[in-house]
Design a protein around this nucleic acid. Structure first.
Lengths: 114, 114
DNA sequence: TCTTATACCTTGTGACACAAGGTATAAGCT
DNA sequence: AGCTTATACCTTGTGTCACAAGGTATAAGA
């Protein structure tokens, strides 16, 4: 019903990869990841990030540790596990394949108009 | 649970665009669209395509008409409406933007390794 | 006549993004 | 001291959706 629903659907799946990429260089926490991705034009809310982080931790792709004294409240820093890094690479590869295929279809059907 | 769940998520949203692109050059029907996309490495089942086509028709992005005599059973051919063509272009644009942003993140974090 | 291929559809399930709420703490302002 | 704001995490409820697994119908060939 919401007219921007298809945009949400388009982002789906990429969010998980984006979060993995976010914590790859250095451990980070919920709100910081949101701000980081917002910078990259990927808007998500707390209702999205926290369940997502919890899921990634549950699945062994991320490790978490509490750090206090750096803000009003303790921060939960997440970092990649080896398994998380492997998944990130696989997802990046898959994303590239899909993007390439779609780009080809788009170019064929619509042309290269920007 | 399923280990390939993230792949399903990655495809989400792209499916709708892929279907719109499929019927853009010429009207097509369910099974033919499946075979066409399979050719482009996008695998989807009948349990996916028929609800999707029904949704796109319900939302006024596709028009349908029955055609008999070309197969064992009547085929339901779908074609783009003007509104569907507009949506397709918007989605293609959005997809390119997302893909570009993701590609940048991937290149920064992982590098350009293939 | 029986099987196979084609073609459409439905129901049930699980995953998940998001809105809308909530809790807790520290710092700054009045 | 009280009040507000910003930070930070979390939960519940809702709607959407991809897919598996089933079903129905028809025509052609073995």
């Amino acid at each position: 019903m919401t007219d921007t629903n298809w945009q949400e659907q388009l982002r789906r799946g990429t969010l998980e990869l984006a979060v993995l990429l976010s914590v790859a260089p250095a451990p980070s926490y919920g709100l910081e990841i949101i701000r980081h991705l917002e910078f990259a034009d990927l808007v998500l809310t707390e209702g999205t990030i926290y369940p997502l982080l919890a899921r990634l931790e549950r699945d062994g792709l991320l490790d978490a540790r509490w750090v206090e004294g750096q803000g009003p409240r303790a921060r939960k820093y997440y970092q990649l596990t080896p398994s998380g890094r492997a998944r990130m690479k696989k997802m990046a590869q898959e994303f590239r394949a899909i993007a390439h295929g779609m780009e080809e279809m788009i170019a064929t059907v619509i042309g290269d108009e920007r």
